[in-house]
Design a protein around this nucleic acid. Structure first.
Lengths: 169, 169
DNA sequence: GCTGAAACCGATAGGAA
DNA sequence: TTCCTATCGGTTTCAGC
């Protein structure tokens, strides 16, 4: 049985080429960098470099190219980490919860957790009033929630979308 | 005194034009969408649309254009939220802590918090062994840390960089 | 202010070494 | 394979409305 047939592999066997890592690092910093620039920086000519990038897009290693906006300049001062526990946990309740969570634009991230917490959410809101309203009118309306713990952030010290390719690959 | 002189305004007085919101929404989804396409979708012609986008870039509302990579396809299975408390808090200790935190590529986000926690970190690692190593060799080496609480995520339910422009502006 | 056209620049593909 | 060239499409600017 061949090993390259699975659509999503959790653990890639290939330890990824060094030049590939360089390419991905540059693209994580700036999606609009010219192929020629990347090629030059990693001592490669355009065409092969372009083909590698293209392959990453096909493979879904590069998921998307997006614009990152300045939260504060848009008047969204609040980031809240909310830990949530449910009353009863079974397939139905989990699916229902997740379906409703995903639909809220204010919830920018959601993870299931090990340990004492069932879910961890990252929520963005304009200010504390808007957050309160969101919890009351939207979040708390989801059935089966037992506990919500809100951890409110004051200042953003670091925020990047760049994965630690250097140290973790 | 004019009001447009401050470099960073926390609360913009301008409630941002509806068409501008549409533009930003589209760019949050796809950084490579053609200006002509945006213009068409919001019933505007290219040039003024382009000028608005350009202004957003100048103003820093659009911070950067980046490629988002697939964490799992790169073999980074772990996201950890680590809450941290320091022993003594003063300007020196805070600045020292933040300076060292920012330098770790594994720490992708860091916030100061209200309430019981001093800092909340979001950390990305290959697996639990790598995370343990990172905490031992890097994080715990920062002086003045009293407590680290690690909240380990299992599954990513939602993850977006899109700010809730519709509901929070 | 908006529109439409024209010039420029870079990405993509194909062909030669 | 890499290099080089042609084509295509998008961005950007500018003249006219």
């Amino acid at each position: 049985m061949s090993n390259k047939t699975e659509a999503v592999r959790q653990k890639p066997e290939k330890p990824i080429d060094k030049k590939d890592v360089e390419i991905l690092k540059l693209l994580q910093e700036d999606a609009n960098i010219a192929t020629a620039d990347i090629a030059e920086r990693i001592n490669m000519s355009q065409s092969p470099c372009w083909r590698r990038i293209n392959q990453f897009e096909k493979d879904g290693v590069i998921k998307q190219k997006v614009c990152l906006l300045d939260r504060n300049k848009l008047g969204m001062e609040l980031v809240v980490f909310a830990s949530i526990n449910l009353n009863t946990i079974n397939r139905k309740t989990l699916e229902e919860f997740e379906k409703r969570i995903v639909a809220f634009p204010e919830v920018v991230e959601c993870y299931t957790m090990t340990g004492m917490i069932d879910y961890m959410l990252k929520i963005v809101a304009k200010d504390i009033q808007h957050y309160e309203q969101f919890v009351r009118n939207n979040l708390a309306e989801i059935p089966n929630i037992r506990e919500i713990h809100s951890h409110v952030s004051v200042t953003e010290i670091k925020m990047t979308t760049q994965l630690p390719l250097d140290t973790q690959l």
